[in-house]
């Protein structure tokens, strides 16, 4: 049986699919009405998603960002939010056609995590154990308000990096767009795209820095080490370094935005690796996340 939270999550997933289709239709048919519709649907999806997350928090009686499913759905939420803010702030609905599919993919990934969780709960119920209780109750080390701040800051960082990834891709594709066509008039010039992406990376790196620092404070309180070169930490550092290179590249005299855009793409690949790859791809390495 599906909980109310599960149903809301499913509706969110369907809505993100609709949002993606609408943005695609907008760039295909090029009718302004479609962009308005897509943005409305985007807002609606985000609201339902927010409700799903709030309900999850109520159900778990804690901040709903403490396991794989909760974190992945929050990541998708942050990407949808930062995407929407940038679409509205820069009147740039074409951005939606690139960011919505990434949001949809992340939400699908969250859906897979949700299925795993439902299986785990069912397995517990089969042996007469309350499975939801198992998921609700965290081990003592995770019962810390530092954890709450740590994951809240990281999802904002990841959301911002997701949008900067999309902007970097648009930047790299910009040269191929015909002058005076739809794309040319609906996508900012490269110079401006670069600055918008820079705003996005700035937001991300601020929050990633805060995340790493707060993680250190928490680890120091819980385990007595603020840094242990655990793979998760190492990869967070790699991601951070890549975005620092991005920042420094932009200051260089005579730099070209292309190199920075490439780092914007590589940075997000690092984000995904830190987030998913470290847990699944690095063989035999133990990670506490």
């Amino acid at each position: 049986m599906m909980s109310a939270e599960g149903i809301l999550f499913l509706i969110t997933l369907i809505l993100y699919f609709a949002v993606t289709v609408l943005y695609f239709l907008y760039v295909a048919i090029k009718k302004p009405l479609l962009s308005k519709l897509a943005i409305r649907a985007h807002i609606a999806a985000l609201l339902v998603h927010t409700a799903a997350i709030v309900l999850r928090g109520a159900l778990m009686a804690r901040l709903p960002m403490s396991n794989q499913y909760e974190f992945s759905t929050a990541f998708a939420w942050a990407l949808a939010l930062v995407g929407l803010i940038f679409i509205l702030k820069f009147r740039f609905p074409v951005l939606g056609a690139f960011s919505a599919p990434v949001t949809l993919l992340l939400t699908l990934y969250a859906g897979l995590q949700k299925l795993n969780e439902l299986k785990t709960i069912a397995a517990y119920e089969a042996i007469g154990v309350n499975g939801v209780d198992r998921i609700r109750n965290l081990m003592p080390a995770l019962r810390s308000s530092w954890l709450g701040i740590h994951v809240s800051t990281v999802i904002i960082a990841y959301g911002a990096f997701g949008v900067s990834f999309v902007l970097s891709i648009i930047f790299l594709l910009r040269d191929r767009m015909k002058e005076n066509g739809f794309w040319d008039s609906h996508i900012p010039k490269k110079e401006k795209l670069d600055v918008i992406s820079y705003r996005c990376v700035s937001l991300g790196i601020m929050f990633l820095t805060a995340t790493i620092m707060i993680g250190g404070i928490w680890a120091e309180n819980a385990w007595g080490n603020y840094w242990t070169w655990d793979p998760k930490e190492t990869w967070a550092l790699i991601t951070w370094l890549i975005y620092l290179v991005y920042l420094h590249l932009r200051i260089r005299r005579g730099w070209n935005g292309r190199t920075a855009a490439i780092f914007g793409v590589v940075g997000f690949i690092c984000v995904l690796f830190t987030y998913i790859g470290v847990n699944t791809l690095l063989p035999g390495l133990h990670s506490y996340k």
């Binding site: 070169w229 550092l237 790699i238 370094l241 290179v245 420094h248 260089r252 690095l282």
Partner: peptide
């Protein structure tokens, strides 16, 4: 600045190696 960028990239590469080769 070029030097800074090279250093940051090299440190990042070393970190990748350190995370791929099991340590200790």
């Amino acid at each position: 600045m070029k030097f800074a960028i090279i250093l940051l990239v090299v440190v990042a590469i070393v970190c990748v190696i350190g995370s791929l080769v099991p340590q200790g």
